[in-house]
Design a protein around this nucleic acid. Structure first.
Lengths: 191, 191
DNA sequence: AATTACTGAACGAACGTTCAATCAAAGTAT
DNA sequence: ATACTTTGATTGAACGTTCGTTCAGTAATT
């Protein structure tokens, strides 16, 4: 009985991973249940034992990905080594982008279209607002005169860098991160 | 005979506009030919007199949009008023985003997914590389030490700002543009 | 023996696409 | 001007395919 529960969870995880992989590659609409079943080496109907529909699978993939990211951002401020909060945030963002590449690709490809994404939008928006506030606090700490405007800019810059990295694996994301960090180290003197 | 040609071109334009509208709203895959025909108040089959397939319609929409944008960026350097090339570029980008919002939404929603977009990618990449070079030249002019790296950052920042504006009409894009411009005016002294 | 995991044929709906038929407009002959 | 002809624009029923989803049946596990 116990191993059944474990096995069930394993099958569920396999479907979540395979779904994420194909959704992020080809897009949600262009990926069929048949393609997911084939990729995961299971039968066509099995998905419906774990998820009520294709949309439900997407929802659960989102939920699972969000949980990981939330956890990562939550522990961000704990580390109090010599580096600033901004530096920590930038490095953390880059690490997350690399680690959860498929999830971010899915997010970036879905967020522009209204119908499917709109119902999953609200928790993500909350998370974004939270990150925004965190950046603002960190910018205020290093003496920025206009932290809310600068936070908006930094957020957009990081988002743009993320987009380019998600579209092109060879994008020099580490160089960009270091360049950004350097900028904020230098600018802390005169802003 | 002449009016027939004009009529044909008008019908074609109507389909291009309606297709762009729906593709940018709901996404390419999620938009059916039937939906386009209904929105344009024409019959189901008429699209196939002007375009060979749904994909061909998308291709032509892209081509048409690209042409407009190319034209706008090409005339960018001509204006030699008191403002710098960077300022001109930022203002021009914002103006284009507002004017061709639907096209940019379509581009941003398609560029992450491989299959459909990949064949239209090459001309767009060329255009991006050209803009990148232009930014670099402008950055060099105002005395940046590392123009190619800075151009990569400015490009990402503008792309991020664009994404946020495309997702949210109330995004303060003008404020962001002015803030960016101010940054580059001030930083020209010590970079 | 009982419970759960899994299969894949089958279903209705929706899709992109085709095409014979209809309509509107322009050209030509009377 | 009027009638006939020709041409191209437009229609929507119909076709084959694929989609998401269901479910009776089979295999595996307890």
């Amino acid at each position: 009985m116990v191993s059944t529960i474990i096995k069930r969870e394993l099958s569920r995880q396999l479907l979540l991973e395979t779904g994420l992989k194909l959704f992020s590659e080809k897009g949600y609409e262009a990926t069929s249940i048949r393609a997911i079943a084939k990729e995961a080496c299971i039968s066509l109907g099995l998905m419906y034992n774990y998820f009520t529909s294709k949309e439900d699978l997407l929802r659960e993939i989102f939920l699972s990905g969000q949980y990981d990211i939330e956890a990562s951002f939550a522990t961000e401020q704990t580390s109090d080594s010599g580096i600033t909060g901004i530096e920590q945030h930038i490095l953390n963002t880059v690490a997350l982008l690399k680690e959860k590449r498929e999830f971010w690709r899915l997010l970036h490809s879905l967020r522009m279209q209204s119908t499917i994404y709109q119902e999953m939008k609200s928790p993500i928006d909350k998370q974004i607002a939270y990150i925004q506030k965190m950046i603002e606090r960190n910018l205020l700490e290093i003496g920025f005169k206009n932290p809310s405007q600068e936070a908006l800019l930094l957020f957009a810059s990081l988002d743009g860098i993320a987009s380019h990295f998600l579209m092109d694996k060879t994008y020099p994301i580490d160089k960009m991160a270091n360049y950004l960090i350097q900028k904020y180290k230098n600018s802390s003197n005169y802003e």
